[in-house]
Computed example of a mutant assay.
Amino acid sequence: MLELRGVQVGAGSTPLFEGLDCQFDAGLITSIRKGGVLDGSSTLLKCCAGILPVQGGEISWKTQSVHQMPVDCRFQAISYCFEAGGLVSLFTVYNNIAIPLRYHGICDEDEVEERVQRAMTQLGIAHLTHAEPHELNDVQQRLVNLARAFAIDADVLLIDELQTGMSQVMYSKVVAQLQAQAARNKTVVMVTTSGDEDGFADRHLLIKDRTVVERT
C-alpha cells in the first residue's frame, strides 16, 4: 500500500495540494483524472516516487517513508513512468531499459536480457530494440518508460498520461498488461485526462480543490 498522510505539495510559492490523505492499495488500478492544466498531477506522482520532496506530511510505502528509503530500495519498489522524456539520449531503447537493472545490481546479465526482452514483447515494442530516443514518437517513448517499470518489476507503477496519441487497439493491449500487473498484486496509479478511457480502473479519483476526491 502506498499511503499519503497530510501531504502538502507546491510549485515554488504556489500550493498544489494541501492536507492530502489518500491510499493506493496493491492489486488495484487507480485512475486520477486531471482537474485542469497545471493541476499538479505530474508533481504529485513524482513526489510519490520520491523524485520530488513534499512540503509537508508524509508518503509511505509499506509503512516506510518513501523519501527516507535508500535509493536502490525505493527504485526497485516504485517506478515513475514519464509522460514525456525520461530516457537517456545516448542509449538505445534496450539499454534505456537495461541500464537501471545493471546499475542497481538487481540481477545478472542473463536475467537482464530476459527481463528487457519480455517487457518489450509485452508492450509490442520489441522492434525498437536498437532505436534511439530521438527516433521515437511520444507514444513509443511512454511505452519504453513503462517497459522499464515492467523490467524492474516494481511493486508500485506511477503512470503519467499514458493514452494520448495511442490507437484504441494499442491502448487496449497496454491496458491488458496493466491489468495483468494488478493481478500480480502490483499497485497501479494512472493520471488520466478528460476523454481518456479509464473504465477498466478499479478506482476513480479526481483532482479538485487541491486534493483528490472520489469520482462518480
Results as ranks from 00 to 15, higher is better:
Gly10Phe: 02
Val189Phe: 11
Gly19Asn: 14
Asn137Asp: 14
Pro70Phe: 10
Glu135Tyr: 05
Gly27His: 05
Tyr171Gln: 05
Pro100Ile: 10
Gly10Trp: 01
Arg33Phe: 04
Leu52Ala: 12
Lys186Val: 13
Ala147Asp: 04
Leu123Val: 08
Gly6Gln: 14
Gln122Asn: 09
Arg203Pro: 05
Leu162Thr: 03
Leu123Asp: 02
Asp21Ala: 13
Ser31Ala: 15
Gln8Cys: 12
Glu132Arg: 10
Leu87Thr: 01
Gly165Asp: 12
Ser13Val: 14
Val174Lys: 04
Pro133Leu: 11
Gly19Met: 12
Val139Leu: 09
Ile152Phe: 05
His104Leu: 10
Ile106Val: 13
Ser60Arg: 13
Asp110Pro: 00
Lys46Tyr: 08
Val213Tyr: 08
Gln177Arg: 14
Glu3Leu: 14
Asp39Thr: 11
Ile78Gly: 01
Gly27Gln: 04
Gln76Arg: 15
Ala131Trp: 08
Glu161Met: 08
Val88Asp: 07
Ile106Asn: 03
Met69Thr: 05
Ser89Ala: 11
Leu52Asn: 09
Val174Gly: 02
Glu18Pro: 00
Gly195Ser: 13
Asp153Val: 03
Val212Ser: 02
Val7His: 02
Gln168Ile: 10
Cys73Lys: 10
Ser41Gly: 14
Cys81Lys: 07
Ser60Gly: 10
Ala180Lys: 13
Gly6Asn: 15
Cys81His: 06
Thr63Trp: 11
Met170Glu: 09
Gln177Pro: 01
Leu101Lys: 00
Gly57Arg: 09
Pro15Val: 03
